[in-house]
Amino acid sequence: MDRWQYLLVLAACLAVTAPLEVFGAGVYRQPARTVKSVLPVAAVFLLWDEVAIAAHVWTYNRGYISGLHIPFRVPIEEMLFFVVIPLCALLTYSAVSAILDRVNRR
């Protein structure tokens, strides 16, 4: 079970923040905008991780990852982290902004 922990935490983050989509214009309903926001930053950090792994500055505990890797020796969980966490942040920001707008209009 330990080797799935990273993926389970990412899934839990999505499960907790996904319902926030109902509060505003949404993140999932604006896929082009979401991709433009998340992918450039994810690409930079994936490259950063690869450099750190190659230089033996950074590593992952094999006991907590699935063992699946994308090119450049980066665990699949790390690539998903760079997509899931910003997505959750965008969902949270969008929901809080929508709620505050509603409250301030009163």
Rank of each mutant, 00 (worst) to 15 (best):
I99S: 00
Q30S: 10
E21F: 06
W48G: 00
I76Y: 11
S66I: 12
A11K: 10
T59Q: 10
V103S: 03
I70C: 05
C88L: 03
P40I: 09
R73P: 00
P31T: 06
L100Q: 11
E21G: 04
V103M: 10
F45M: 09
V22M: 08
M1E: 13
L80Q: 06
R73L: 09
I85G: 01
I76S: 08
N104S: 14
A52S: 08
R33P: 02
Y64P: 00
Y60R: 02
R33V: 05
I85T: 08
V83M: 10
F72E: 04
A89Y: 09
I53K: 01
Q5T: 15
A15Y: 15
M1Y: 14
V16A: 12
H69S: 09
Y64N: 01
L80N: 02
V9Y: 15
V9K: 15
F81W: 08
G24Q: 10
N61Q: 13
W4S: 13
L20G: 03
L90I: 09
P31Q: 05
V103P: 03
H56D: 13
T34R: 13
A11N: 11
V51W: 08
I53N: 02
Q5I: 15
T92A: 09
S66Q: 06
G24R: 07
C88I: 04
R3P: 11
D49S: 01
V103Y: 12
F23N: 02
A15V: 13
L14A: 12
G24W: 09
L46N: 12
S37P: 00
P71K: 05
P31H: 09
L80S: 04
R3V: 12
Y93T: 05
L7V: 12
T17M: 08
D2K: 15
I76R: 09
L87R: 00
D49P: 00
D49G: 00
P75R: 01
F81P: 04
C88K: 01
I70R: 03
L8F: 15
G67F: 10
V35N: 07
F45W: 10
V9D: 12
V27W: 04
V51Y: 04
T17F: 10
N104A: 14
V22A: 11
P86W: 03
V22R: 14
A52T: 05
C13E: 13
V41W: 10
L10F: 09
N61A: 13
R106E: 04
L91H: 08
L20C: 03
S97V: 14
G24K: 06
V44M: 05
D49C: 00
